[in-house]
Amino acid sequence: MEKIPILKMGDFLLVTVQIDLYDRLALNLEADLVNMINKHQAKGVLIDISAVNIVDSFMGRILSNIAQMSKILDALTVVVGMQPAVAITLIELGLPMTGVRTALNVEKGMELLKRNRILDSEEEETTSTDEDDSAE
């Protein structure tokens, strides 16, 4: 059985989907990811779908599911690199995937995760030391 590898990078998990997903593979990915988030206490998940040619309602649902599940486990999911044709098709299909964060590419997705991480830790500290650096 093929498996989609999940890489761990610090606090984040990185998944690159290289082939067109069929159902079993997608469901396995969902389960694997949730387990990995829990095991490593990951704070962010980055899913690169730039090589995926088709996302139908089933796969769209899996992506939303992963986003929601990881949110419950306190991790942010970012889907990156969606192809224009796939985006247009998803909209036409009626699946705007609200609730799933997106970014143009892996680099921008990573930035988003890191920024989110910084915001998180700032909240935890609750000591607002240098907030107004823009005011002059």
């Binding site: 040619n53 996302v55 139908d56 192809q83 224009p84 044709a85 796939v86 247009i88 098709t89 036409e92």
Partner: peptide, 9 residues
């Protein structure tokens, strides 16, 4: 490409 993706989906 877009129409093909729509058809395939």
């Amino acid at each position: 490409l877009v129409n093909k993706t729509k058809l395939l989906t």
